[in-house]
Lab assay of single mutants.
Amino acid sequence: MASQGTKRSYEQMETDGERQNATEIRASVGKMIGGIGRFYIQMCTELKLSDYEGRLIQNSLTIERMVLSAFDERRNKYLEEHPSAGKDPKKTGGPIYRRVNGKWMRELILYDKEEIRRIWRQANNGDDATAGLTHMMIWHSNLNDATYQRTRALVRTGMDPRMCSLMQGSTLPRRSGAAGAAVKGVGTMVMELVRMIKRGINDRNFWRGENGRKTRIAYERMCNILKGKFQTAAQKAMMDQVRESRNPGNAEFEDLTFLARSALILRGSVAHKSCLPACVYGPAVASGYDFEREGYSLVGIDPFRLLQNSQVYSLIRPNENPAHKSQLVWMACHSAAFEDLRVLSFIKGTKVLPRGKLSTRGVQIASNENMETMESSTLELRSRYWAIRTRSGGNTNQQRASAGQISIQPTFSVQRNLPFDRTTIMAAFNGNTEGRTSDMRTEIIRMMESARPEDVSFQGRGVFELSDEKAASPIVPSFDMSNEGSYFFGDNAEEYDN
Results as ranks from 00 to 15, higher is better:
residue 108 L to M: 10
residue 489 F to N: 04
residue 43 M to T: 09
residue 345 S to M: 05
residue 354 P to I: 01
residue 235 Q to I: 03
residue 367 S to C: 13
residue 202 N to T: 04
residue 173 P to N: 02
residue 111 Y to T: 08
residue 405 Q to P: 04
residue 264 L to F: 07
residue 77 K to M: 12
residue 462 G to L: 00
residue 217 I to N: 13
residue 475 I to L: 13
residue 116 I to Y: 01
residue 125 N to S: 13
residue 466 L to H: 11
residue 21 N to Y: 06
residue 442 T to P: 01
residue 89 P to I: 11
residue 184 K to S: 01
residue 131 A to C: 15
residue 235 Q to E: 11
residue 355 R to C: 03
residue 64 E to D: 10
residue 296 Y to N: 14
residue 121 R to S: 14
residue 401 A to R: 08
residue 354 P to C: 13
residue 371 M to K: 13
residue 135 H to I: 06
residue 154 L to C: 09
residue 381 L to D: 02
residue 21 N to H: 13
residue 444 I to F: 11
residue 364 Q to R: 12
residue 427 A to H: 00
residue 287 S to P: 00
residue 35 G to M: 09
residue 107 E to Q: 13
residue 121 R to V: 14
residue 292 E to P: 09
residue 300 G to I: 03
residue 278 A to I: 12
residue 244 E to A: 06
residue 350 T to H: 05
residue 442 T to H: 00
residue 498 N to L: 08
residue 231 Q to P: 09
residue 137 M to W: 08
residue 209 G to N: 12
residue 24 E to L: 15
residue 369 E to D: 12
residue 191 M to T: 09
residue 45 T to W: 11
residue 404 G to E: 00
residue 112 D to H: 12
residue 109 I to A: 01
residue 264 L to T: 09
residue 216 R to P: 02
residue 133 L to G: 00
residue 342 R to N: 04
residue 223 C to F: 10
residue 111 Y to D: 13
residue 314 S to H: 01
residue 458 F to I: 12
residue 441 R to E: 09
residue 216 R to D: 08
residue 92 T to V: 08
residue 196 M to D: 02
residue 11 E to G: 08
residue 95 P to N: 02
residue 336 A to S: 07
residue 282 G to N: 00
residue 108 L to D: 07
residue 127 D to A: 11
residue 87 K to D: 03
residue 470 K to D: 08
residue 68 L to V: 10
residue 324 H to I: 02
residue 82 H to W: 04
residue 186 V to H: 03
residue 483 N to C: 08
residue 305 R to D: 00
residue 479 F to C: 10
residue 220 E to Y: 11
residue 454 E to W: 07
residue 479 F to S: 09
residue 54 G to H: 01
residue 430 N to K: 07
residue 113 K to G: 02
residue 316 I to Q: 12
residue 346 F to C: 06
residue 496 Y to C: 14
residue 85 A to P: 11
residue 316 I to D: 00
residue 196 M to G: 03
residue 1 M to T: 12
residue 315 L to G: 00
residue 263 A to E: 10
residue 1 M to F: 13
residue 52 Y to E: 01
residue 460 G to T: 06
residue 380 E to N: 04
residue 206 F to G: 01
residue 130 T to C: 01
residue 238 M to Y: 03
residue 313 Y to Q: 06
residue 96 I to M: 13
residue 427 A to N: 12
residue 383 S to N: 13
residue 342 R to Q: 05
residue 482 S to M: 07
residue 367 S to W: 07
residue 139 W to V: 08
residue 408 I to N: 10
residue 53 E to T: 01
residue 153 A to F: 01
residue 335 S to W: 00
residue 383 S to R: 10
residue 220 E to D: 13
residue 26 R to P: 00
residue 328 L to A: 06
residue 6 T to W: 05
residue 311 Q to F: 00
residue 426 M to R: 03
residue 136 M to G: 00
residue 194 V to N: 03
residue 105 M to T: 09
residue 475 I to N: 14
residue 60 S to W: 10
residue 54 G to W: 12
residue 197 I to S: 04
residue 408 I to Q: 03
residue 22 A to M: 11
residue 148 Y to H: 11
residue 38 R to T: 09
residue 54 G to E: 14
residue 58 Q to G: 00
residue 73 E to M: 15
residue 262 S to L: 02
residue 189 M to N: 07
residue 289 Y to V: 15
residue 460 G to L: 05
residue 375 E to W: 08
residue 491 D to A: 12
residue 413 S to F: 00
residue 128 D to H: 14
residue 160 D to E: 12
residue 468 D to I: 05
residue 302 D to V: 08
residue 467 S to I: 11
residue 180 G to M: 10
residue 103 K to F: 04
residue 219 Y to R: 00
residue 289 Y to M: 12
residue 333 C to E: 02
residue 258 F to V: 10
residue 174 R to V: 01
residue 466 L to W: 03
residue 197 I to V: 14
residue 375 E to N: 12
residue 293 R to N: 10
residue 330 W to K: 03
residue 263 A to I: 05
residue 67 V to S: 15
residue 27 A to E: 08
residue 237 A to M: 14
residue 312 V to T: 15
residue 91 K to G: 02
residue 363 V to A: 09
residue 345 S to F: 05
residue 28 S to A: 07
residue 353 L to P: 00
residue 291 F to W: 05
residue 458 F to L: 08
residue 495 E to Q: 14
residue 469 E to M: 08
residue 297 S to P: 10
residue 56 L to M: 11
residue 381 L to M: 12
residue 239 M to W: 09
residue 387 A to Y: 03
residue 361 R to F: 07
residue 280 V to T: 15
residue 270 V to K: 13
residue 250 N to W: 15
residue 187 G to S: 12
residue 126 G to W: 10
residue 493 A to P: 10
residue 112 D to P: 02
residue 44 C to K: 05
residue 139 W to D: 07
residue 479 F to P: 02
residue 352 V to R: 00
residue 151 T to M: 14
residue 50 S to T: 11
residue 185 G to V: 07
residue 225 I to C: 13
residue 24 E to D: 13
residue 247 N to E: 00
residue 290 D to P: 15
residue 287 S to K: 13
residue 87 K to C: 03
residue 320 E to K: 10
residue 449 E to V: 09
residue 127 D to I: 09
residue 218 A to R: 01
residue 218 A to Q: 05
residue 423 T to L: 05
residue 326 S to W: 11
residue 434 E to Y: 08
residue 18 E to R: 01
